[in-house]
Amino acid sequence: MESTVKKNSNTENNTTIKTTKKTSKKMKKFLSYAAFVGPALLFFIVIQIIPFFMGVYYSFTSWNGVSSAVEWIGFDNYKQIFTNDPKYYDSFEFTTKFMFAAVVISNIIGFTFALILNAALKTKNVLRTVFFLPNVIGGLLLGFIWQFIFVRGFSAVGDLTNIDFFQLPWLGDASTAFWGIVIVFAWQISGYMMVIYIAALQGIDTSLIEAAKIDGASLYQMITKIIIPLILPAFTICFFLTISMAFKIFDLNLSLTGGGPFNSTQSVAINIYQEAFTYNNYGVGSTKAIIFFIIVAVFTTVQVMVTKRKEVEA
């Protein structure tokens, strides 16, 4: 009897010790995860989540952004925007056109750079740095630099060469100002896209390319039939990034044209900024921001779904 009792007690002690060890291991894992993820999660909640829900709340109010009086007005702001705010629709039209042009041009340039620099060039590392460098420069600074180039630099070159391209009123006319912003955006962001495409290209099995060359495939056939289908996930990422960046353009637009001439190049972000902080209609500005968020979220979600389906088909 005594031996049986001792065995049972020893078994219980061993079980308790094992349970305690497992609990301590789980606690250590939790604390290590919390130490690494906790600060980032806290900042994300404070900087992103809380302001977002505050914006949703203020979109149903009439508030000037300064006074303590916040009046709940329900869906009046939404009704006003959908029925009587032509400037908001104009800014959406400009932003949508800009997005399509910027996405196509940026990805073509980035993919072309990636194809060139993926080859065995002696200067490829230097060129990668040079092409990526514009992405490091801040948008406002970049805009002011290109504003000087468009206004003073192009004018000086045009006077010397009499080439019509350099004599255009790049930031003074609606059509040329539009393409001026597209050029600067593509110049800034194409290097970033290039890096993603290079990473994808380096994952391709070189034996496939060599076999295609032996079979007599042209460069166009290798790009369209082999390379692009194999790196479609990279296109999904690049399209998502360029679409979201182009939709949310603010700093380049502000420093290059400020939305001019005559609001012809005013992006949605600038329209929201002016509504909230220039005209002191914080409630209406929040409403515009929420509508803008929903449209961008739907657009990017559809884009990812479509391109992911293409990946599966390929």
Results as ranks from 00 to 15, higher is better:
residue 257 T to F: 11
residue 228 I to W: 09
residue 25 K to G: 03
residue 125 N to I: 04
residue 86 P to N: 00
residue 309 R to I: 04
residue 202 Q to V: 11
residue 166 F to Y: 05
residue 193 M to D: 11
residue 281 N to Q: 15
residue 111 F to M: 10
residue 72 W to V: 14
residue 292 F to V: 08
residue 245 M to W: 05
residue 301 T to H: 12
residue 263 N to C: 01
residue 40 A to G: 13
residue 265 T to N: 07
residue 189 I to V: 12
residue 1 M to K: 04
residue 215 D to R: 09
residue 235 F to D: 10
residue 304 V to N: 12
residue 25 K to M: 07
residue 158 G to Y: 00
residue 156 A to N: 02
residue 89 Y to L: 15
residue 158 G to T: 03
residue 125 N to F: 09
residue 175 S to V: 11
residue 300 T to Y: 09
residue 133 L to M: 14
residue 72 W to Y: 13
residue 122 K to F: 02
residue 78 Y to Q: 04
residue 192 Y to P: 10
residue 283 G to V: 06
residue 68 S to M: 14
residue 103 V to Y: 01
residue 114 A to Y: 03
residue 200 A to N: 06
residue 70 V to Q: 01
residue 84 N to M: 10
residue 178 F to D: 03
residue 172 G to N: 05
residue 65 G to S: 11
residue 200 A to P: 04
residue 122 K to V: 07
residue 289 A to M: 09
residue 311 E to M: 13
residue 16 T to L: 09
residue 132 F to I: 15
residue 160 L to P: 03
residue 254 L to W: 07
residue 117 L to R: 07
residue 10 N to S: 14
residue 266 Q to L: 14
residue 39 P to C: 03
residue 242 T to N: 05
residue 95 T to M: 06
residue 31 L to S: 14
residue 279 Y to K: 09
residue 278 T to S: 13
residue 131 F to C: 07
residue 275 E to N: 11
residue 140 L to S: 04
residue 188 Q to R: 05
residue 250 F to W: 09
residue 104 V to E: 02
residue 206 T to I: 08
residue 150 F to M: 04
residue 286 S to I: 08
residue 281 N to L: 15
residue 296 V to F: 06
residue 12 E to F: 05
residue 223 I to C: 08
residue 11 T to Y: 10
residue 208 L to T: 13
residue 265 T to F: 07
residue 81 I to K: 08
residue 162 N to F: 01
residue 222 M to S: 13
residue 268 V to W: 00
residue 124 K to D: 07
residue 7 K to E: 14
residue 207 S to D: 13
residue 261 P to Q: 06
residue 65 G to P: 00
residue 33 Y to V: 15
residue 266 Q to Y: 02
residue 92 F to S: 12
residue 7 K to V: 03
residue 211 A to Y: 00
residue 185 F to N: 04
residue 196 I to N: 00
residue 75 F to Y: 08
